[in-house]
Design a protein around this nucleic acid. Structure first.
Lengths: 111, 111
DNA sequence: ATCTTATATCGCAAATATACGATAAACGAT
DNA sequence: ATCGTTTATCGTATATTTGCGATATAAGAT
């Protein structure tokens, strides 16, 4: 990119975009699904379930964590990850609101 | 990327990721909001509302169209864009389902 | 203290995304 | 037929993302 333009948009637009970006890779979707399938936080075994190297999975986990979508505590050779439901509900709610509002206002298609 | 790994994931994971990717830029969020504010499809004037050059906006519109989130008909010097509600509801529904399901199964946090 | 195991981080290469100016294309108006 | 307007596409530069191997780190086991 020649010039950064993202900061020209509203904070809410940037936040929603950042949330979507965190979900914008199948590996990260798969990780979130994994975190849900077990009825508890996953301590280890995430790498084994994905067709990616350990370092790559670790990087995806890091991104999810930075985005606030998962929580994780690391104690030495063991890590423990789980979904941050609060953040999730917040963003999903904002999206739903945005699109429900849109839906209400605009129902007739023309193109 | 040395090697493409996206195709190793399920189609649904890839589809959800692609949907999220389309939303993963504030300009595209802003465009969708614009398309909602007017009570009809927007024919022109999208470029004027964004802090980006015409060619860049056109590119974002193209991506939203390829992702199936908007429809657009172009007749010569005029274009007409509107949101594809069907696609929207489909993806938002899938996300909601995924996360509601997750929420149901897993409520206790451990990390 | 050393070994093992699990995870994070670093450094790099390749792929993708973002942005813009220049140009092309499509059509209405003159 | 030419001009003006609007939008798309091309070419290019830069930024970011993805992925991996190598290495570091952290803690339990021996």
């Amino acid at each position: 990119m020649a010039i950064h333009k993202k900061e020209e948009f509203t904070q809410k637009e940037q936040d929603l975009a950042a949330f979507a970006k965190a979900l914008a890779h199948p590996a990260r979707i798969a990780i979130l699904k994994l975190l849900a399938q077990k009825n508890e936080c996953i301590c280890g075994q995430i790498v084994d379930e994905l067709p990616l190297s350990q370092s790559t999975v670790s990087q995806h986990l890091k991104e999810l964590k930075i985005a606030g979508l998962i929580d994780g505590s690391i104690d030495g050779p063991r890590s423990c990850y789980c979904i941050n439901w609060k953040a999730f509900e917040k963003f999903m709610g904002e999206f739903s609101f945005l699109f429900n509002k849109m839906k209400l206002q605009n129902e007739k298609a023309c193109c």
